[in-house]
Design a protein around this nucleic acid. Sequence first.
DNA 1: CGAGGTATTGATATCTTTCAATTGGTGTGG
DNA 2: CCACACCAATTGAAAGATATCAATACCTCG
Lengths: 227, 227
Amino acid sequence: MYVTLSNEFTPATNSPELRPYTLSPEAGTQRKQQAIGSHLFREGDIANNIYEITAGVFRLTRVLDNGRRQVIAFGLPGDIIGFPNGTLHHSNCEAIQTAEVIAYRRHALDSFDGGHETHKRLLDAALREISAMQDHFMMLARKSALEKVASFLITLAERTGTPIGKYTTCALPMTRGDIADFLGLTIETVSRTLTRLRKDNIIVLETTQTVLIKDMTALVAASQVAD
Amino acid sequence: MYVTLSNEFTPATNSPELRPYTLSPEAGTQRKQQAIGSHLFREGDIANNIYEITAGVFRLTRVLDNGRRQVIAFGLPGDIIGFPNGTLHHSNCEAIQTAEVIAYRRHALDSFDGGHETHKRLLDAALREISAMQDHFMMLARKSALEKVASFLITLAERTGTPIGKYTTCALPMTRGDIADFLGLTIETVSRTLTRLRKDNIIVLETTQTVLIKDMTALVAASQVAD
DNA sequence: CGAGGTATTGATATCTTTCAATTGGTGTGG
DNA sequence: CCACACCAATTGAAAGATATCAATACCTCG
């Protein structure tokens, strides 16, 4: 699933059981390496495949005329991405970390060609996607900068974090700009908010691209309350 | 499709051909009347059905702990709503106008029981939904109040408006609060923005619940540019 | 070591929200 | 039929949050 929301909303979405296991290779599937910075697909491309991420991180974006960009989602291992609209892709998908995907033929989604199991799995992923996006709506529309950043860190930590004692470290493979465009904020606000969390002793930024969550309770609190 | 975005992004979503025609009744489908103010389903309900709206207007919402509410979408005739997450509904769906739906068994989505045609149609609706929601992300995250309200009016007019000479009238069956919660604004900001459009001679509010769009060009301009 | 991109920090501006009051419309009962 | 109550919408003034503009610090790579 996409990095989209904190678990408070769609438990099913983030439940470990559903996540990072991979279908056994089947007819019509194919493994594919993806170099950092390269596009898996672009907006307007004919959508021949749907992809399951097995390694690395992707960034899905759309761009407005004015140049304003929205990061729709970050794709992490276990996520299924590239659901077409009609026959076309409707977002840009770029690897921001060396990645690997399994490509499923698009056809597998509207037929049972690839097997019932594959069909069901792709469909479920699409439905979970809808649910997750609804959560992201609340995030974008109804949360403050602090709540957004805190929620984001929590979700990322749940998905990709490593426990170290009672703490959790977590890589931030995306830039501040990516995070900002995902949360509907500016780079400066993201930076300031991270600084605030740091000064409040809730997180430590070991490097620009690594967070250590020292006080998960406080982080969860920050993600939920406005006052 | 959901009232979600201006056509600038997902042409397929709003294209007339895809929209308001209705499947011939099939096994497992059932017509249903829905009184104003009554719920079609609620968050957490077992999702037995997926619905196609044939008349009326629905409001889909989710609520945050703090009471903050998000209107996920407005459901208009031709829209398909109620895609489940797992076996459950993940939003509340209430008729805000006397409505009628066709209920499809949920099972029709992951099997061909209801016929290939039904399956394909439901699936396509789900995929279009994903695309439309992505557009709504841009709306929520990257548009000003004026752009949001203008975009909203345009989409609504395209979906439900009636041309009157070179103008277009359009009902606003939802309250200002509903619009605000859909766009991620407050009631006051929505009201002020409508007033501004009115003073700029772009729209006329014939009643609180009816808009007349006098200058579509200007409205489109307002929906796109920030400056 | 210097260049170029990324991130942080500061000061100020702008937009939206918040709080508060008023208006408008609708339905009910006297 | 009018008065009143109630709820939705509008309008105003002030506060607050985030964006914008600008400068500086930090890193990585030649």
